[in-house]
Nucleic acid binder design. Structure first.
Lengths: 250, 250
DNA sequence: ACACATTTGTACGTATGTATG
DNA sequence: GCATACATACGTACAAATGTG
């Protein structure tokens, strides 16, 4: 009993060790966004591997959104600034494969948007409040005239809110989930017969939310935002799953 | 004005088109988990590309968690069941690159866990409630004796809650963020002088949450869980950022 | 504007260790 | 144990793209 507890040795591929080292260099800050990796041939010699191995590693790093390489660029692969693209990709995959239902996605947004609004009501500056107000004004101006502008103003509003909340993770996740939801139902939204009524109601809801944020009543603003999102999206969710959404409306 | 709006043609690499086609086959269901891709040589001929191109595509698909290839396996790469591993990886990268602060991560968990508990209070079955109760009992049994078991029981509790909530996206995200937070502060937790007091308080909080869920009082359960998480983690968050956490405690 | 050297993208061949039947 | 098919890794070769003088 006792004795040395040996770890099972998983056969680690050559390209993985290249990936690990480059990843470490990037995450530790030794390589920063805008910087360049050595050329592929240089990497071959530094890691003592073949070019194919180097290239497989580069493809993995590229898939993770850490670097980008361009055909013929003599400077080598470019280290990218952080972007939620990889997060977006993996969440989209989960959603596409029916692993995630529309109801779950909408519910997720109801939770996170409400939280962002609750935080924004307490932490916002006057300037941020003005941005929200301006975005709602743009929604009103665009309604019944330019649906794309209406959607863009809506995005601007939620973006201003989530920035005021001060939580980048909430910002990223709501961004990602919003675009996935829109992709899932965009054709149905465009063809909705009561589209204009939905927009008018949405604008009224947004105005109420802004008023509550201005008054500093976070819980009210959060409740209103959940209700607004339910009203806007519930029609696209199968009836059997709407109960789960209503559970958030108390 | 008007006229055909031509899309800019980005030079798409050969390996990307291989990735796209395989991805499409998987996400459309033509290839299901457990199934096998053709061998690399077979893929060469089917796509009319070289071996290196096939391999770069496979590395990307592997990085996205869609397939796994094993050295020497005569059956070809295996199509994997969908897992949040890729999501986990990209979120971890975000956190490691200091793009996300500990306060933001804890705040995110306060929001999502509270939401899961609110939903669980309304949607849970008797069996799920029993699971939560059993997990808290294990926490109590393990306290002051086996810290690893205490942590495991804690995880079991939150897992039972989030399963009862019925939202897989919340489940995935809380899982991911929890493990990231733990990794960030694990050494500090292990060395905390008041470790036992923290555990006792945590157990009491969990019991109160279970009681509220049993009583069907979702808002109370959610409030209690936010408070519990704040009490447990606030000590590790810099003072200047604790205000953002307290903003969730109303 | 043009030619140049360098780099990436892709193809092909070969050697070696591995998993399956 | 053995034969077979396979993935891993290396090396070479050439076309296409890029940056520079």
């Amino acid at each position: 009993m006792g004795g040395p507890r040996f770890e099972p040795v998983r056969a680690v591929r050559a390209y993985e060790r290249v990936v690990e080292q480059v990843e470490e260099a990037i995450e530790s800050g030794a390589l920063s966004p805008g910087g360049r990796l050595p050329s592929e041939r240089e990497l071959m010699t530094q890691f003592s591997v073949s070019r194919s191995t180097v290239r497989e590693a580069l493809r993995v790093l590229q898939a993770r959104g850490l670097v980008r390489s361009r055909h013929g660029d003599p400077h080598g692969a470019e280290v990218l600034p952080f972007s939620p693209a990889a997060l977006h990709k993996s969440m989209t995959t989960l959603a596409r494969v029916e692993e995630l239902s529309l109801a779950e996605l909408v519910q997720f947004r109801m939770v996170l948007d409400a939280a962002a609004i609750l935080l924004a009501a307490r932490l916002r500056t006057e300037e941020q409040l003005a941005e929200m107000s301006a975005a709602v004004a743009r929604m009103r101006a665009a309604a019944e005239r330019d649906e794309a502008a209406f959607g863009a103003a809506d995005v601007d509003f939620h973006d201003a809110v989530v920035r005021a909340s001060g939580n980048k993770l909430i910002q990223i996740c709501t961004d990602v989930v919003r675009s996935i939801v829109l992709k899932l139902i965009s054709e149905r939204i465009a063809g909705a017969p009561d589209r204009e009524a939905l927009m008018r109601r949405s604008i009224r809801h947004h105005e109420e939310v802004v008023a509550a944020i201005r008054a500093g009543d976070g819980p009210l603003a959060a409740r209103l935002s959940r209700k607004a999102m339910y009203d806007y999206y519930a029609g696209y969710v199968p009836e059997s799953e709407r109960g789960a959404l209503r559970a958030l409306l108390e």
